[in-house]
Design a protein around this nucleic acid. Sequence first.
DNA 1: TGGTGATCATAC
DNA 2: GTATGATCACCA
Length: 224
Amino acid sequence: MTNYQKPESENELISRGQELCGKNLSQLASEIGWPVPENLNHNKGWIGQLIEIHLGASAGNLSQPDFQNLDIELKTIPLNAHHKAKETTFVCVVPLLNHTGLQWQESCVYKKLKKVLWVPIEADPALTLGERKVGNSFLWSPTEEQLDSLQADWEEFMELISLGQVKTITAHQGEALQIRPKAANSSILTTGIGQDGLREQTLPRGFYLRTHFTNQILKSYFRF
DNA sequence: TGGTGATCATAC
DNA sequence: GTATGATCACCA
């Protein structure tokens, strides 16, 4: 019997993740009466939302962990034919205002990544969306080394932002983390701090995990 | 051809 | 616009 209720424990969540392993996306979609789109061009979050429902994550767009009772975040990770991360992973929006005195352990990056259930998904373009299978999901928390790396990048970025340098930041910066636009399009504006210290309108940005970083995580859980 | 900058859907 | 979920697509 499929259970779409929220999992009551970490172990229940993990075993439900394992139950999805080997199933393809058209199976999972038909179980909940969803059509399978031809591609993700017009619905980029489709796979993430499909997996959320199957694992009983709290629906909606609340600014909370996916599994509030367990304090666990759910992230799907697209893999190419070589089982490597195909895309970077969005973490959260970059705070551009009122972040003075914000500590690393209070940051959205730290909170989101403290405990993550990674669900690998085949994303080889040779496969249709419906053919793609779910891989072995696993629960991860950053090692001390990974935490240090994330914190160093985060502190460097937040320093630049508080100095009014948001617009100078490019996706080339950062070892584990990077900052890129996060908006419906390039004309969306939000308020940040300008070079003169005054408020200015700028493109909203997000923190993303580099594929190099997520590939290290995958490597430590799957030994080929 | 891979990574950076841009973009898509949807609820409120 | 901001939050959720991410991948697209162009160019160096």
